[in-house]
Nucleic acid binder design. Sequence first.
DNA 1: ATAGTTAGCACAAACGTTTGTGCAAAAACA
DNA 2: TGTTTTTGCACAAACGTTTGTGCTAACTAT
Lengths: 356, 356
Amino acid sequence: MAITLDEISKVTGFSVSTVSRVLNKKSKKYRISSDTERIIYAKAEELGYRPNELARGLRLKKTHTIGLVVPDISNPFFASITHLIQKYLYEEGYSLIVCNTNEDIKTEIEQIDLMRRKGVDGYIIMPVGTQYEHIKDLLDHDKPLVLLDRNIDALDANCIVVDNYRGAYEATECLIRFGHERIAIIQGLLNTYTNNERVRGYKDALADNGIRIDESYIVGNDFRRENGYISTKMLLNMGNPPSAIFAFSDLITLGMLQAISEEKVKIPDDVSVISFDEIDFAPYLVSPLAVVVQPRELIGEAAVKLLIEEMRSKNKVGKRKILLESKLVIRESMKNFNSPNNENSNLGVSVHRTTS
Amino acid sequence: MAITLDEISKVTGFSVSTVSRVLNKKSKKYRISSDTERIIYAKAEELGYRPNELARGLRLKKTHTIGLVVPDISNPFFASITHLIQKYLYEEGYSLIVCNTNEDIKTEIEQIDLMRRKGVDGYIIMPVGTQYEHIKDLLDHDKPLVLLDRNIDALDANCIVVDNYRGAYEATECLIRFGHERIAIIQGLLNTYTNNERVRGYKDALADNGIRIDESYIVGNDFRRENGYISTKMLLNMGNPPSAIFAFSDLITLGMLQAISEEKVKIPDDVSVISFDEIDFAPYLVSPLAVVVQPRELIGEAAVKLLIEEMRSKNKVGKRKILLESKLVIRESMKNFNSPNNENSNLGVSVHRTTS
DNA sequence: ATAGTTAGCACAAACGTTTGTGCAAAAACA
DNA sequence: TGTTTTTGCACAAACGTTTGTGCTAACTAT
């Protein structure tokens, strides 16, 4: 069907090996005459030769394909990162196999196994994180990989995460400075790295400011919209509802807004809100939404850089754990009880910074 | 490195072919004794055998991989579709290679070529659409493919599109019924199927209602945010600015909102707006945003179904063009001059419907 | 006891590459 | 003219599968 080296070999009269060498630009090395070279190039062009990457991959043990494991591409945060990763990889000459795990560890294991069978050269994984034998197995076999967004402490793997602890700490502390004490959080998936760190940051900020931690203000168990909706409904209908809600993802925020809208509660007068993850429409919401922004571009770029570096260096260098800073963006959705006119713009805004 | 049939063959003493047949569940067909079967299964399990899909693909000429060509994964609309496609394909046992074209025809051609070299079994393509030799070439070689979101009339290919004409027509007509005459549109990428259809719908709606088409109200040339921003700035600063703006994508809308916000213009009192594409946060914006919703789930599901069908049937059946309906969702961002209290909820809302 | 079956497996080719090595002819040298 | 060097290419193995065919030993039947 498709044109092969063999066909070019037949029509030109040169051997398959010669054709291969010419098309791989190894003419000099193997002393192919430039006449021959021209003939072969011309024929290849004319026939529309297209190398079979399966055969090549089989022979070379390199596929120039990277596997990306992401919990949910439809989540804007992950979509954005996927986009950037694909872009940078393309620039480096790699293709991308993408798979969604839906935060399901079984799917994650299956998908990684499948990628392995397909011979991907490296992996970028945003793991569910509850289990990691399969990732350890990759490491044990010297597969280049980088963990993204969620670290797994037990593994000596390359890793790029945002400082979720500090992001949550700063957001919480800012709410406290604004006079809030009844601060609720709507968590994402329990026992994920990101969620754990955020909860820790939240709790520490409360503790450091002498505020008792009220477990009834800690709700939710999933990064998705439905969780935001239900959890908010619960919070708003408590005996002593929170004065501020800190949502741990953009999708949670979406559900939260729906619930708040249905309950006829006003932001920020009745309740203040802040959200993890950038939300493009945040400034234009009924009440412009405060957010903890993660540096998506840096995450995507760093992931690719780190992976490529590891692939090139053949595992000679040690693994690196990179911590990126988040940025707090304060907007009107946070009521400032200590400033009558609610003048809080640009307060405590920190810039992105890369540490290592 | 990795375990191969050959190694299992050596440790069990059976030939490679026997091992292969057992692991492929062809024992009966080739009369392999169940003792042998057990031994081989056990060893394969013990050694953690993982078939090399490159070798298999080379031999079988099937990779169980589908190539997806998308203009911009970071666009929520495309992200959502990508997600759904990946989900349905996974259920059918296929992996997904994703590539972004950024609306660049050259990249599209390159990427499709690359996928072809990698031996994908089928293609789902959201084409830039300005050029299509490369797609025609795929068709000429009987590659299963389905065009998504944008049709190319000149090609006899499977295709799934939303009725952009009608979506735009209905939205425009609704604005007219609400008393608007100076209706501007901010176009997406020129000469794409979707953009052409939307413009056509817009113009026809105006014409059918006896409103002169004012070309100065037709601005923009790109589906991205920057275009929305700049175009809106231009529109708002015209001598006779429009009373309503129809943005042709969610990202355009984002830029538009930014411009509107900066210009201190109020929605819907100073200007009405409506947007193509679902925007999750639409109901919670300063002024809840009217949108033309496209049935993403249907698009994703239909794409996969159609592709799988074509792959199974070996091109025996004719190509199909499927047209999906959009849905107009009216919200407060559209001012109704004919209804004092602006009571327009649920007006003219049509439901999704699948035609063929 | 012998012929015919059948069960159970091995051999080898093929998929399309890449690459180390070998070999004849031409060129260079003496 | 004879020897050495260089040029220009072909051969063949290997990557890990799948699968058509062939072969031996055991079984069945007479």
